[in-house]
Design a protein around this nucleic acid. Structure first.
Lengths: 213, 213
DNA sequence: TCGTCTATCTGACGGATTGTCAGAACTGAA
DNA sequence: TTCAGTTCTGACAATCCGTCAGATAGACGA
């Protein structure tokens, strides 16, 4: 069922699993170093120290390997989902919880950005396979945030002029894009902490209706 | 100076200019259809009806052509900058102006998204060439938004706990990513208008300190 | 009209990458 | 050690890359 298979469909054993993993790690590393546009199967194979034929035994092409890495993002991000769900249910100081969420998610981007960027790109480019993964990856964030917005709206603290989905989406957009602007920010005097504080406050206010101050 | 040159550096004439343009338009079209990851020089050349050698006369590779398209985005987006600057200086009903900005920028993304996505991707991947273009492309938005935030903070309407650059960046993030989520939104009942209204209100409130309601 | 000059384009090439086999090498069990 | 199943790879045809030298086309003067 969830057994890993080779491109010919057969279930693979321990040795093959390790090879597959080395290919994935190498793909991720090269992705970080040189980006996706000119990442070749040959580059990965050379770096792994294997024949290109070995690569093709596990993945159809480089994009397919990045797809596998994207799938793994879903479980890698799960602890952040869990933390968020736990925090937000107990209902205590929301702003601190928002700070923690933004901080942890920014760290997550710093580590996994290279893969996440291609996942989002291919989903944006209408690839259905990646769209499904993007949905699964985003869903817990979206669900939690939409619920927050609806709750705030139901209790009258937040205007219903805001669409709950769109509000959550906008906050997710900030979470996903701001790590990519951090270097530029820092060059102009906006520290990582200031960025996190700002996004946390925007997030908190947009989801609860509390004023920014 | 701003004359267009071939890869060997010579300034090109009228006929060559048309060839170059056909290559660029074809690249943009194929980018929309099949995305960037497996867009080959051969694909473009075939579609243009020219030899690959002709392509290489004007661009080093596909990415280089996308770079040229990215450069063109700067002047293509200028009218939206201008409209925004004009609107925001006269100081009248800010929310309506925000609506117009979001609406027009969403349309801009619908037309030019394929190129914008790669511009942002390559900049995110630390390519200095694309980073420069991204800066130039974003600068007018950022400058105007940062000024708005600072003004609101100076007059005491907005908390200084928000960093001006980060706030502007977060709003830009929403503008840049939400068009990519629109199809998903619409499938779940959030119309284009609702999305625009929401982003406009978030933008307006974050830049002015006015409450969401 | 014709020939010439120059800008532009391309056929053809060596080299690299892609993707696919059949079979070689490895592994663990008997 | 032998054997059977698993995993890996050399070798190949097909395609793509990137670069020439030379072919072609358009402008212009005679």
């Amino acid at each position: 069922m969830s057994d890993t298979t080779a491109t010919d469909g057969r279930v693979i054993g321990e040795r093959a699993l390790q090879t597959r993993r080395r290919i994935l790690e190498t793909t991720a590393a090269l992705l970080r170093e040189q980006g996706a546009l000119d990442l070749k199967v040959m580059d990965v194979a050379r770096e792994v120290g294997a024949s290109p034929a070995t690569f093709y035994q596990y993945f159809a092409d480089v994009e397919d390997a990045i797809f596998a890495l994207s799938v793994e993002m879903i479980e890698k991000v799960a602890p952040i989902h869990a933390q968020m769900a736990a925090d937000w249910n107990e209902g205590a100081s929301g702003l601190d919880h928002a700070r923690r969420l933004v901080s942890e998610y920014t760290d997550f981007w710093d580590v996994n950005g290279a893969v996440l960027r291609i996942m989002l790109l291919r989903a944006d480019e209408r690839d259905e396979r990646f769209r499904q993964i993007r949905r699964d990856y985003n869903a817990p964030f979206m669900t939690a945030m939409v619920a927050k917005v609806r709750a705030a709206q139901d209790s009258g603290r937040l205007t219903t002029a805001l669409d709950a989905e769109a509000t959550a989406g906008a906050m997710l957009a900030a979470l996903d894009r701001l790590p990519n602007y951090r270097e530029g920010f820092e060059k102009r005097g906006t520290s990582r902490e200031a960025m996190i504080e700002t996004v946390a406050r925007l997030l908190y206010s947009s989801l609860t209706g509390e004023p920014f101050g």
